[in-house]
Nucleic acid binder design. Structure first.
Lengths: 192, 192
DNA sequence: TTAATCATGTAACACGTTACATGATTGC
DNA sequence: GCAATCATGTAACGTGTTACATGATTAA
């Protein structure tokens, strides 16, 4: 149920329309929880049925009308319960889900060259992503000027950025080592 | 579509019933791609409609009859295409999806103590999981004696285990550092 | 002889993805 | 004046999760 709680968290910063929510989501939470636009609109409807949010229709000129969503008291309660009752999601957050690793698992079916190329392609993407990540701290500083209580919040935002760095560093280290191992074994074969 | 391809990969080792597939899946692929029993049965049906697998009903005594699934030529083709056309899934494998990180992002709403506890709980789970992982190499060695061509395959299986070690090591390092940072700032506050 | 678990699945619902629709406004 | 994109969504389908059903066999 994390998309719902991500939305609650953002609406807790202030009321927003679905469109704005979507943009803010993509600039912040999408780094560790991606979601399509259509999904956000659907979740908003469900959350409204749950009584977690309510909306006010804002009539606009020259552009489509919008629904300004805000948290209800029930929504705030739900949000704070989710935040404090840690145990629930942690087990799920332990799980790795990677189609790439599945391919590595089956890479014995490929030639050694193709297997090495597979990991090299992954390494390249990781390097790219890691580089993009260095820009995130800047975004955080920019975003934090938009909200009150910024110091306390941005401290935690930065911890998630730090996580990203640690994560991709580990991916890169592993990929390099894997390639080394595979190349090493290949050369041994050649020498025997 | 990775569940389908995981199933193709396992059936490529030999024909199996849904039940056996499920067990083998849980012992091997579930480490990086979890799936419910019910999902595996459904995917098998879809894959049969796609012409990727076919099944033969085996009548049994004293226990339920079973459907022995095996790959068709089309299924083999699909499997090898998936294995070699790397690009497709790599972008998706870049994505992090973690409800835990979402909580960290919003942890500014919590007291410092509760925020630290959140990360400590995560750290504990990571340590547990990392420990369980050391058992995996043994499982791999055991499993590899069951199949032909074991050397080449188990080399890649071990790379995925190596990945797991690198991954959880990074998580643990990050979590410890995060706790240190949060504690450090707390103590500074006390001293000012 | 009762509880666990083996071996097979089905049904319903929640969540995620892809593709499309509408009309205004801005940039070239 | 034409293309891009802003701002709002809907519809259909694919994937993942939860809960349940059946009857045999094995272990305490």
């Amino acid at each position: 149920m994390s998309l719902k709680h991500g939305i609650l968290g953002l609406l807790n910063y202030g009321s927003m329309s679905g469109y704005e929510l979507n943009s803010v989501f993509k600039e912040s939470l999408s780094f560790f929880w991606s979601a399509q636009t259509s999904q956000i609109y659907r979740e908003l409807e469900t959350m409204e049925k749950n009584g977690w949010v309510e909306n006010e229709l804002v009539i606009q000129e020259g552009r489509p009308n919008k629904k300004l969503y805000s948290l209800t008291d029930e929504g705030k309660t739900e949000y704070h319960n989710w935040l404090s009752n840690s145990e629930s999601d942690i087990e799920n957050s332990m799980k790795i889900r990677s189609a790439f690793l599945m391919r590595v698992f089956f890479a014995g079916e490929l030639s050694d060259e193709d297997a090495i190329k597979l990991i090299e392609d992954y390494l390249k993407e990781c390097l790219k992503t890691a580089e993009r990540l260095t820009l995130v701290e800047g975004v955080i500083d920019g975003f934090s000027t938009l909200t009150q209580n910024a110091d306390k919040r941005s401290k935690y935002w930065k911890l998630t950025a730090l996580y990203g760095e640690a994560y991709y560093t580990a991916e890169i280290t592993w990929a390099k080592k894997a390639i080394e191992i595979l190349r090493g074994e290949k050369d041994e074969d050649v020498n025997n």
